[in-house]
């Protein structure tokens, strides 16, 4: 009950924040209005503060409780190339954009897909990954349901993590289905494994991984992703230097194959599974 209107509140808080930011023009000393680029701030501080949220295999905890994942590699590499230390600020996904705007960290490297709405409040760099929204269904409940239309019916329950692209997409493709929203992905998948929801939508490769692991309960009715996505770093608006720096970093690391190599390690193999200790 307490969290029923959470999204509304966050939207409200974010909106009010933007208004305050515009009207006072001096929301924070970390704000771009100071004219100093965040790149300079990072260099001066000797530390880059990266906002992220755990999301397999982008960012997760290994057995030692330390952060590992594709994005963690990316952020570490950025820091290395800038010659600074990296500091991760794990943040609840719901609050990650307001936290960036109010200067709690310098950049979001958090598997954030570019969407026009988000782009109104933050700037995106060139994408450093292209994932897609995948789909996994319960074998028993969704038996024989192999078309998109089969899931767009009343009585069909779909699980998603609140606030991610997959949630918006589910509303778009399956308007008649009932959407069950959860605070984290694991809960959303568990709901389908438990047979309380027909299917779950989430960024690949999670649906594939879960299906492999729970092959007796789950299956993937479609062989293509529902929607292609592009993940990029997010920065505060009004800082062209930073946008230029991080975009070009992505360009360089795309061209030399570093990003592709890391991406394949985390998304195509499961060699890292032992580290997580499932």
């Amino acid at each position: 009950m307490k969290f029923l209107h959470r999204r509304t509140m966050i939207a409200l808080a974010a909106a009010a924040f933007s208004v305050a930011a515009v009207s006072t023009g001096s929301v924070s000393h970390a704000q771009a209005a100071d004219a100093e680029s965040v790149v300079q701030t990072i260099k001066k501080r000797g530390v880059i503060k990266v906002g992220m949220s755990s999301f397999v295999p982008w960012a997760m905890r290994d057995k030692k409780g330390e952060l590992i994942g594709f994005e963690i590699d990316v952020a570490k590499k950025v820091a290395e190339d800038m010659g600074v230390e990296v500091e991760f600020v794990p943040t609840a996904w719901d609050g990650i954009i307001p936290a960036l705007l109010s200067g709690k960290f310098d950049v979001i490297i958090g598997g954030m897909s570019i969407t026009p709405q988000r782009n109104l409040s933050v700037n995106f760099t060139r994408p450093y990954a292209r994932s897609g929204v995948g789909f996994a269904a319960n074998k028993k409940l969704a038996d024989g349901m192999t078309t998109l239309d089969a899931y767009n019916a009343s009585g069909v329950k779909l699980a998603v993590r609140r606030g991610i692209t997959a949630a918006t997409l589910a509303q778009k493709i399956f308007p008649k289905a009932r959407l069950l929203q959860f605070d984290d992905d694991a809960q959303a998948f568990q709901e389908v494994v438990n047979g309380n929801a027909h299917a779950v939508l989430s960024s690949e490769p999670k649906p594939t991984f879960w299906t492999i692991e729970n092959s007796d309960v789950l299956y993937q009715p479609f062989d293509k992703v529902l929607q292609r996505g592009a993940e990029a770093m997010a920065l505060r608006k009004g800082d062209p230097d930073a946008l230029n720096y991080f975009s070009n970093w992505v360009e360089v690391r795309t061209n030399d194959g570093w990003l592709a190599e890391r991406h394949d390690y985390w998304f195509k193999t499961q060699n890292w599974k032992d580290e997580v200790g499932k």
Partner: peptide, 13 residues
């Protein structure tokens, strides 16, 4: 918060 992260990483909800 820690629980959310561990549950997400290990999937042992």
């Amino acid at each position: 918060f820690a629980a959310t992260e561990v549950a997400n990483s290990t999937q042992r909800v």
